[in-house]
Write a protein that binds this DNA or RNA. Sequence first.
DNA 1: TTCCGCGTCACCCAAAAGGGTGATTTTGGG
DNA 2: CCCAAAATCACCCTTTTGGGTGACGCGGAA
Lengths: 168, 168
Amino acid sequence: MLKHVALYGLLGGVLIAVLRWVEYRWLIVDHSMSLYGGVIALIFAALGLWLGARRARQYEDDRVAPDSPKLLAGLAQTDVSAPPDGSDGVAARAAPNAPFPANDLGITPRELEMLALIAAGLSNKEIAARAFVSENTVKTHLSRVFDKLGAKRRTQAVQRAKQLRLIA
Amino acid sequence: MLKHVALYGLLGGVLIAVLRWVEYRWLIVDHSMSLYGGVIALIFAALGLWLGARRARQYEDDRVAPDSPKLLAGLAQTDVSAPPDGSDGVAARAAPNAPFPANDLGITPRELEMLALIAAGLSNKEIAARAFVSENTVKTHLSRVFDKLGAKRRTQAVQRAKQLRLIA
DNA sequence: TTCCGCGTCACCCAAAAGGGTGATTTTGGG
DNA sequence: CCCAAAATCACCCTTTTGGGTGACGCGGAA
């Protein structure tokens, strides 16, 4: 996590440098600023998106603050890292969409996540897109979870997972 | 999601405008560019972070897509339930916010049966064996029911059927 | 009687899913 | 620091699914 911040800062620095260079190179061009802003915006947006996804899945058991996620608030949350200490406490919340209940099958959070996604009717490709991983990875996770559940098909896995209350 | 993209674009536009302004305001300052890039980077990074978190957070309740699956189904339904017996007919169903009164989609009993079987996690072959029909027939039924439900996959069909209370 | 919905089945084809193997990178704990 | 678990990804190959088309018999409604 810390490494990411560092990397992030570094990238920012590099970018700034590049921009300085661009500044001299394109000073004559009228719309350089716009172009410029666009490029930075794009790059950092992508980066932010990536980081956001990463962060989101790091403590996905995080309470789902139903408030209005403010920009700076979200940013601030990046720094504060909630120590998940592995204990439960989540089990108490019997809400219909309680994300990750405990299980004794050794199903990892990531696997459970994919399970929930197939239950929602998504294809492997869609899951991959949503979880920011490759389709191959999705298939791997699903293979494992099928094995753990003793399921041969995704529909069967969903059925069993629901039966075991692993998913809503 | 589209809304987000639009919002995103809009924000970008506003930002560009602001930046132009800043450009004139701080042109004399040497490090304007750096500052500049920093500001954009920060804002968009935050935005990306926010979007990423938001996106990652909403997989639980798979929105039932704005794509309405009722086109053909609606037509079929019009055919079967519009006997020119005089006045009313369709007018009977005057509950626009009713939680889907059973089956408006014209799903036949046989189709519903197969639907229930895939929800139980059976493969087409197993369904065929259990229903004493060929696998091809199963596929035909499922094709039709998928169409009526607007589903592309069996998992999706199951999800929607459950949502519509067509199956347990 | 004719028409139509329903259930049945057969092909063909493309895409998705699943199984198996091997490999690398992250990450958390000792 | 090192290890183990988790997560990631890439291949290959087979099976399953899904889409599209066409066809046939049956039974009820027009």
